[in-house]
Simulated assay, not measured.
Amino acid sequence: MRSTLKMPKVGDAVDEVVINDIQAQIGARVVEGQTLFVVETDKSQIEIPAPFGGTVVEILIAVGDDVKTGAPTLVLEV
């Protein structure tokens, strides 16, 4: 089953972040809690972890993208 991960809310006053680094790769197996990508707000950098384990089948973001809370980011096969 495929599951599309969405950008979580990273702060009370933050509705959009910039993608700084993508650590997941297509075909890679990830485990719950593993960092998928790193985002930057105007105040800090935040690591976004996998909410559950699976295999990365699609990456819907790129480094430098502005991404809003709730936007699709990755697709995992679970």
Rank of each mutant, 00 (worst) to 15 (best):
I46W: 05
F52C: 05
I48G: 01
L74P: 01
L76C: 06
V17K: 02
D12F: 11
V56C: 07
T41Q: 10
F37H: 04
M1D: 12
V57H: 04
A62W: 00
T55N: 09
G33P: 06
V63F: 02
Q25I: 02
A71S: 15
P72E: 04
G64R: 07
V56R: 04
E40W: 02
V75Y: 04
V63N: 03
M1F: 09
P51C: 11
V57N: 02
V39K: 05
E32C: 08
D66P: 05
M7S: 06
S3T: 13
N20F: 05
K6N: 14
D65T: 05
R2Y: 02
R2E: 11
P72V: 03
A24H: 06
G64Q: 05
E77H: 09
V14H: 09
A13F: 11
F37K: 03
L36M: 12
M7T: 08
E32R: 15
G54D: 07
V17H: 03
L76P: 02
P72F: 06
I46N: 06
T41V: 12
I19H: 06
M1E: 12
Q23R: 15
K68C: 02
T35M: 01
P72M: 07
V78N: 10
F52K: 13
K68Y: 09
S3H: 10
L5M: 06
A28C: 03
V31I: 04
A24G: 05
K9F: 08
A24T: 07
